[in-house]
């Protein structure tokens, strides 16, 4: 579903992504972890072209999303098929929760408003916030906002979802509610790529873990293999640092 082939990116002289070769298969849940500055966020943002790559190929569902020859309509269409959840939620503050969710299906996919509303209520129910449909983002807690953000992304019925550190900006007691929603998505067979520090989630839900450092994917393994017997020395150091505190 998502394939990286020899992907490289530079910020000026800084080599942010080095020779990335990897694939997220359909229905797979991949967790990307690593120390800060390793390029994890940059990597996931290249998938829907919030960041551009300098060389290599990035295929989403067979389409080259990073190709410069894509028309803007093409790019928008591809983006609408990839759900993206941000660390800072980025809900639209001037719209109610319901409008946040229905805006894109109505305006981009041309869904009838009544139909979109129904689907939105079902999604809100799924994330446990049906009673907040008419509230505004400012009135919600961080965890609630992030769950709405997930519902907003799901409203476009994407075949794949990307999560960029979805719980890093949350107070500890709200992390669980968001992870629960993500777990539910994974159980339903969604193709997911998550950048996260939540190792418990990785261990329980991920099909594979990618460890990144300094722009490279240094190790890919199943969670059991990765957490019990990491191969790469830097992966070992990362895990021991995590356990230390």
């Amino acid at each position: 579903m998502i394939r990286f082939a020899e992907v490289n990116k530079w910020y000026g002289a800084y080599h942010a992504l080095r020779d990335i070769n990897a694939e997220v298969r359909k229905g797979e849940v991949v967790v990307v972890c690593g120390p800060s500055g390793s390029g994890k966020s940059t990597l996931i943002r290249t998938v829907n072209r919030l960041e551009e790559i300098k060389s290599g190929q990035l295929l989403f569902d067979g389409h080259d999303i990073q190709s410069r020859s894509n028309s803007s309509a093409e790019l928008n269409r591809l983006r609408s098929r990839i759900g993206f959840v941000f660390q800072s939620f980025n809900l639209f503050p001037h719209l109610s929760v319901l409008d946040n969710i229905t805006l894109s299906p109505v305006r981009i996919r041309g869904e009838k408003r009544a139909v979109a509303r129904q689907k939105a209520m079902a999604l809100l129910d799924r994330v446990g916030l049906a009673n907040k449909a008419t509230a505004y983002p400012a009135q919600l807690s961080g965890g609630q906002q992030q769950r709405v953000a997930i519902a907003r992304a799901l409203a476009m019925e994407p075949p794949a979802m990307l999560f960029d550190e979805p719980t890093s900006a949350l107070d500890p007691e709200m992390v669980g509610e968001v992870l629960a929603v993500m777990r539910g998505l994974a159980d339903d067979g969604m193709t997911m790529m998550c950048v996260t520090h939540e190792m418990g989630f990785a261990r329980d839900v991920a099909d594979r873990v990618w460890f990144m450092d300094e722009g490279r994917i240094l190790e890919t393994a199943t969670p059991e293999d990765f957490f019990t017997a990491p191969q790469h020395p830097r992966a070992r150091r990362f895990l021991s640092d995590l356990r230390a505190h």
């Binding site: 803007s72 983006r79 609408s80 305006r107 476009m156």
Partner: peptide, 14 residues
């Protein structure tokens, strides 16, 4: 905040 335009574009808005 710049995240707003990113979120809008990520959803597929022109």
């Amino acid at each position: 905040p710049p995240g707003q335009i990113e979120a809008a574009r990520a959803l597929g808005h022109s």
